[in-house]
Design a protein around this nucleic acid. Structure first.
Lengths: 181, 181, 181, 181
DNA sequence: CATGAATGAGTATTCATTCAT
DNA sequence: CATGAATGAATACTCATTCAT
């Protein structure tokens, strides 16, 4: 991932990766099917970890709104923790999207499903509006979080990402319209 | 663009593009500096056209909220009009983002600036909340619109994109929280 | 020749040559068979001129030794007069030697024949030794003159080429051995 | 070298060279930086060997005149031994002179220095005239030897090159002027 | 298990030459 | 006579992958 993060997926060489890993070129192929599989394995493993951690945390929140806050906070926190990983996720993964459909789509779908579940729970709790295209909301939330992280990664991590979590969720909740008095 | 849309940027061959255009390989280089410039030229030209059309239309709307609706409607409409173009924009452009920083960033910045201007106008009109991280809102709006289009493009254009414009803008405006009675 | 001198034969483009000549690319082909013919024509024309001038001058010298001096002086003078031409002759012509066999060999042969004739005349006059491999001497003289010009051209024409003519001919005549007392 | 000798440097294809060497195209690049480096490596290695052998031999000669004879004999002998090599040296190396300045100039300079040293030794021994432009003499000797070899190579090696060594050196020593009685 | 030398398919780009106008 | 847009053949170099050791 260090190599991918620095050189980009297609800019990276299997030799570079092998050198960084301290093994011979051929050894890579004992553990990965091919170059793409190196990235795919990473995505599989780390999205697994991410979702496990997230679901674990969400279980401890008492309602949908708290869960939404928690999800975004965790997502931001994970990105902040390992900028290498985040860079690969946000920028490089899109570059091979055509190739990696399966892994990426799975992760995306799982994210959307998670948000969808939170929203439905919120509707049952009476905290979330009933008149929503849930499919649309899910995408709005995912895309916004994703975009904010991408902007932060591209900026070089200069500002405090964590501080944006609550304002972003508030936007999702209350929108931008001025309140009628 | 037909070739790029079908094969992806790096999957496309200059020879293929020439064949599709009905000219010889060398002819391409009379009109474009290199392969990348084919895509860059496209982006330059079409984002110019897009923004011209958008700014023209927005001038006819009387307030910020109407302008926001108009922007999203136009964006969706443009994507629906030429799925080739949209596909290249949504999927392929990200693939060469590292190379094409300039063109893409310019277009993105222009979009964000446009949304920012609408928001500020709305704040002056008293239609948009004052307590907003405008930078955050701009990104939320761009990313959501972009993501909805991407999903539609990837789906193969099966459903009616235009119908999603107003619900999406309503989400931006009012959020998802159930109204306190 | 300005283009060839600056860029080298294979580094030169027919377009560059056309531009320098102030005509369109295609026009070149009304006057030359192909790129190589541009160089070949130059060689033909200028070696013709050179030999005409040389033979003319030599006719006015009264013996072989004076003729040898005159030949070398004229050769050096011609090079000094037009460094473009000389550069092309000394450096570039060798680069396409394989292609231009005919023209170059003709010019070389004519030069060697000229020197040969001078030598034989000198032998008849009793001024030149009889026991010589004339073929060897011809080549020594040509190669030495040629090399001295090449060195001068490559040096950028910094020193006075003309001043070397007589010392060089003296070397041919008397060699380097110290005279027995 | 076989390929270069037959096709010329720029006429040769890396694929041809690989085929001749019985390896795959890519393998070439494990041993050479690029096409030019194939030729450059050859020059480096063989001029090293040549000069080592020459300096070794010259040390065994007792005076400058014997050394001059030995140098020319060795040079001719080396050319005769491997006509491929000689052809590349004499003809092809000049073709890429612009590119290979460094290697070629080094070898040429070393040759000229060697001749210069012999001449100076001869002057101290009283065997060589004092009134010489040594720079001129060096070039005369190098150019003549080089030209004689080139003529022999181009002729297809038909005549006996070795037999020309002593007559050529005698020319350098005594010149062509008939002796005054 | 690990190595790393060898492989060879794959491709953007240049530029001499042509020919319809 | 002149143009210059169009042509398309031709080629060095990279790098993912293999496999004998």
């Amino acid at each position: 991932m260090r190599v991918f993060a620095q050189e980009g997926y297609s800019g990276s060489t299997v030799s570079q990766i092998a050198r960084e890993a301290g093994v011979a070129d051929g050894t890579i192929y004992l553990y990965f099917k091919n170059k793409e599989d190196i990235l795919a394995s990473f995505v599989r493993q780390h999205s697994q970890e991410f979702f496990d951690r997230v679901e674990d945390s969400l279980a401890r929140e008492k309602n949908a709104i708290d869960k939404l806050h928690a999800l975004v906070r965790l997502h931001f926190a994970a990105s902040r923790l390992d900028r290498h990983k985040a860079l690969v996720y946000q920028v490089e993964m899109r570059q091979s999207s055509r190739l990696m459909k399966a892994e990426i789509r799975d992760a995306l779908k799982r994210y959307l499903d998670l948000v969808g579940a939170i929203l439905e729970e919120g509707q049952q709790e009476g905290l979330i509006r009933q008149d929503l295209y849930v499919g649309l909301v899910k995408r709005m939330i995912f895309a916004s979080v994703d975009e904010v992280i991408t902007a932060w990664v591209i900026s070089g991590g200069k500002y405090d990402l964590a501080a944006l979590a609550d304002p972003l969720v508030d936007l999702f909740l209350d929108g931008v319209r001025a309140q009628a008095k």
